[in-house]
């Protein structure tokens, strides 16, 4: 569905993307995970032809994506990061306006609008002005406004920013349903939980470069350890920092230390040592490694940085 070959995009003061290459297959739910400013939105803007790359090519299907090639956009739906809606008119009117850009037959458009509104539980509010909607409702409307032309490819640029958990879950469920129905979805986020839940394949991007990609299992397998250890910061653990470092690399992460175990790490010897040092196991949390840990491992920084 998508072929991105050696794409570079430069702005006057920054190189947003540097030699990025990616492919996304038909029907994939592809995640693009990276911190703010990593280049995710720039890549999205290139995918819809809003920007032209300074180098490299992008194809969606057989169409080369450029600013001037309108044909390529007919099969793409974009869920923008911002709430791209008109606040002073109703939800129904917003959808009719955005649907009209695709020259859909009137009856078909109205049927689709009703179906999409019902799917995201906004049908009863369809005649209300968007300005009266909650943030979550606007996000749901923002999503379905991109689906009226039934695109094969849906680009979601952090579509859950500022959304309450209930609306987030509703959006996730809806996206999963769309993906099951055959839509290819590219989903950018800086929340590793979202990427882990939704995406069948994930690329991690940082400073305009793809630093790794693969399925979730592939990516986690790149970690040299199977357990992720968090140590809550307090007076007793802070003074034992050097002791922790004997077992791996310690990264200071706000209210805790993240311990990345080294190759000789033994869980039993770690806990025995903690007991000898008088560190309560209450302050130690074990978990399966996450993409957050992988990102930390690869970049030395948190996704939230």
């Amino acid at each position: 569905m998508i072929r991105i070959s050696d794409v570079t995009k430069k702005f006057p003061t920054v190189t947003a993307l540097q030699n990025v290459s990616l492919t996304v297959a038909d029907g994939e739910f592809f995640g693009l995970l990276g911190p703010n400013g990593a280049g995710k939105s720039t890549l999205m803007n290139l995918l819809i032809g809003y920007l032209d790359p300074d180098g490299g090519d992008i194809f969606v299907g057989d169409e080369k994506v450029t600013r001037d090639n309108l044909e390529a956009r007919k099969n793409i739906g974009l869920v923008p990061q911002s709430l791209a809606l008109y606040d002073d008119i109703s939800a129904q009117e917003n959808l009719e306006i955005f649907g009209s850009f695709y020259h859909i037959e009137k009856r078909t458009l109205l049927d689709r609008i009703e179906e999409r509104l019902r799917a995201v539980e906004l049908y009863d509010r369809r005649k209300d002005k968007v300005s009266t909607f909650s943030g979550g409702m606007k996000r749901r409307l923002n999503l379905i406004a991109s689906l009226l032309h039934d695109p094969k490819l849906l680009l979601c640029d952090e579509p859950t920013v500022g959304v309450d958990p209930q609306s987030r879950n509703a959006i996730f469920d809806y996206l999963e349903m769309l993906n099951r129905g055959g839509k290819t979805i590219v989903y950018t986020t800086h929340y590793m939980e979202e990427a882990e839940r939704l995406c069948t394949r994930i690329a991690i991007i940082d400073s305009g470069t793809i630093i790794t990609e693969g399925t979730l299992d592939d990516l986690l397998a790149k970690l040299s350890y199977e357990e992720s250890i968090s140590i809550i910061k307090n007076s007793s653990t802070i003074e034992k920092l050097e002791k922790f470092r004997q077992f791996g690399t310690v990264v200071d992460d706000d209210d805790r230390y993240e311990l990345k175990p080294n190759g000789t790490f033994r869980l039993s010897s770690f806990f025995k040592s903690m007991e000898d040092e008088g560190v309560s196991t209450r302050f130690i949390q074990m978990s399966k490694p996450t993409l957050e840990a992988l990102f930390l491992n690869l970049t030395g920084r948190s996704l939230r940085d």
Binding site: N45, I48, L70, R73, P80, Y86, F101, S146
Partner: peptide, 16 residues
Amino acid sequence: KLSGVVLRILASPISR
């Protein structure tokens, strides 16, 4: 532009 509507419009088959 600020609201993102311009981006949404340009993501459809509409030119500048």
